[in-house]
């Protein structure tokens, strides 16, 4: 199958049922997307497919052939995405393992809702687990990221 990952076309030889997550991690070598549960419970594997957030652990790679797949590695080249800047500014991360997924989920949120309310943030980010408990800073950083995106005219 042919996959469009981060703007590059990859010819992938994988079983039909192989999740996108493991294609990314073990076949393409993009390890920024994380495995946490394998059943869409934790959000660590979140990528964007045609601009929409998707849990790559429950997405057969064959189901997204031909679609535009974006992983944390290409959200920006230089940590300049508003979400990444806000995360750094507000010192969000701890162990960091869930943060690729958190950042991808937050990026999807501010794209869908450029000025999210507290309730919007709770609703969208409840799908991403963090065992270190960075939630309070994530809430603040999503607001900050939205602000930065508006300043950039990003939206």
């Amino acid at each position: 199958m042919k996959l469009d990952i981060n703007g590059r076309s990859h010819e992938i030889d994988a079983p039909d049922d192989m999740p996108l997550l493991w294609v990314l991690r073990d076949l393409v070598g993009l390890t920024g997307t994380k495995y946490g549960c394998g059943m869409a419970q934790c959000g660590a594997c979140t990528v964007h497919v045609d601009g929409q957030p998707m849990r790559s652990c429950v997405t057969p790679a064959s189901a997204v052939a031909g679609q535009k797949i974006t992983t944390i590695e290409s959200l920006s080249d230089d940590a300049s995405h508003p979400v990444q800047r806000a995360w750094i500014e507000l010192d969000v991360v701890q162990c960091g393992y869930c943060q690729s997924g958190q950042v991808m989920a937050a990026a999807a949120l501010i794209r869908a809702k450029p000025k999210p309310s507290d309730a919007d943030i709770d609703a969208a980010m409840a799908g991403n687990l963090c065992r270190c408990g960075t939630y309070q800073r994530i809430r603040a950083a999503v607001h900050r990221a939205a602000e930065l995106a508006r300043e950039d005219g990003h939206a």
Partner: peptide, 21 residues
């Protein structure tokens, strides 16, 4: 003082054991 590992961890470049290749 802000963390020194933030950048690596918001870009997916921080290496965890499971990422070792």
């Amino acid at each position: 003082t802000r963390r020194l590992d933030s950048r690596a961890k918001v870009t997916g470049r921080a290496e965890f054991g499971i990422d070792v290749q």
